[in-house]
Design a protein around this nucleic acid. Sequence first.
RNA 1: GCGCCCGUAGUGCAGGGGAUAGCACGUCAGCCUCCGAAGCUGAAGAUCGCUGGUUCGAAUCCAGCCGGGCGCACCA
Length: 557
Amino acid sequence: MKIKEQIKEIVLAAARAAYENGALKSSQVPDMDIEEPKHESQGDLSTNFAMVSAGLQKMAPQKIAQAVVDAMPPVDTIEKVAVAGPGFINFFLSASAFHPVVDEVLSRDEAYGASDVGKGQKIQVEFVSANPTGPLHVGHGRGAAVGDSMGNILSFAGFDVQKEYYINDSGRQIRTLGTSVWLRIQEMAGRPVDFPQDCYQGDYIRDLAKELLEQQGKDFPDQDEAKGIEESARFAAGKILDGIRKDLEDFGVTFDQWFSEQSLYDTGRVDEAIQNLKDRSVIYEKDGALWFKTTDYGDEKDRVVVRNNGLTTYFASDIAYHIEKYERGFHRVIDVWGADHHGYIKRLNASVVASGRKSEQFDVILVQLVNLLRGGVPVQMSTRAGEFVTLRDIMDEVGKDAARFLFLSRSYDSGLDFDLELATRKNSDNPVYYVQYVHARITGILVKAAEQGIIPEIDFQAGKNLDLLDQAEEIKLMKILAGFREQVEKSASTLHPHVIFTYLMTLASAFHAYYNKHKVITDENALTLARLSLVLAVKKVIRNGLGLLGVSAPERM
RNA sequence: GCGCCCGUAGUGCAGGGGAUAGCACGUCAGCCUCCGAAGCUGAAGAUCGCUGGUUCGAAUCCAGCCGGGCGCACCA
């Protein structure tokens, strides 16, 4: 990053000098990119300055490039500058240009890679928010991994992040849950029950029924049905939510706040929100129901907020919820949803905009579905039928680290094939080991060095000579280390956590290659110290990166 | 029918305006008396779904088509 900024300064200064001595026709400079070329023969860094200036200068890009290069004074971190291809200016840097990154990593340690692009802006990430009507399944797992990691990354990038879980503890599904448990209790009391199709079928309902029955005693099934259902619902939802909380905790996910939908009704927020929209004249009555004119904001059709039976829709409480979020002071709100809810984006966006916020202040991360396989064969999943693989099952089978890493290995824009059999294999098929192995391997080296009397953390502060790091593999490693912050920023700005995954794979690969080619602990003390410093820096960045994804960095495996 | 996402090597995916398109798995050929072989090196393997358009330049942006996934309630 720092190197890139230096190069940009140099190019701008040279362009100015070239204009002053008449080699360029215009003093104007357009936006340019400084990037790493794909091929080593094209140097360490490259700029498209000449190509994007062609229009302004009314000159051929190659000529502009040459004029800039000619006006460039020699700099000791730059070994060579060359004009190539359609007009790229390629910079070949000396090894010393990369050495400072090692000390930077060692001294900044856990903060290395952190950025302040977020400028402390308050941002909320709401994710999972599964109805407390059953245990979390695989799809929730992917959403949890994405939301939690996105929160970590945004926080690392300088945003003031709050993670929140919205509890849908109101409405029909909760009543259905209550009915399901109540009917199972009736069965247990020996009464014939025709268990409806649209009730929850899973075994966990029976378990809850049994537990509630034991807790309440024999008379419980004889009470008034409405009260029985209500009590069953409250009991079951509470228990299930406890389970969800525990699952998420074990998955490495914690929330700053659990927000109850019911509380929006209790505090009158929902009525307030509807009144607010009425005041803004975006609500009208038709067929006995209240409609929100979401079509004014790009939706396909208007949506009902209060039904003709007087009950509010889920949409109504969601409007209230989102208004409330901004009132809590969040400048930006991010919702993480399953892809099957995509039809909901426009109407919720409409409510955000109608209540006076900007569309840019609201993002929905749409996580595509997880396709669960077992040995290549699709596993059928349906909450209603009670056949599903839970997040708990996944964790038990493949472990938290492997599950989180796999969930984050690809862009959430793509569907994810998650093969249990494959992920269960405890061998190198799993990419998480590839990265964690780097951390463990380096730990091994450091232990060995300590045994030989070289105590890294202390000795590295003095007596090392980073100039000794001049091997191609070492320079490549330093280059990758130097790019960490940029990747964090990219991940934060695009809201894509898999950027970090890809980065870690690249770093891990470069380390393994280095390790196989060069010994870290050598006969020369100074060289050993320099290499230990580099390797320790790699270890720290691996740990920081894995941390963002919620994956542990083991000392031993 | 309409909407959202995806189509890149045998398979699963990165790359999302630039120069010779990457990684993993799989296949083939190699590398441990040596800091951890859960690793490394090399080879083979791709008309970047198709057709147009924008651009000095398109896998990348736009349009249309084809194919796949998911949605389209006064349910949540």
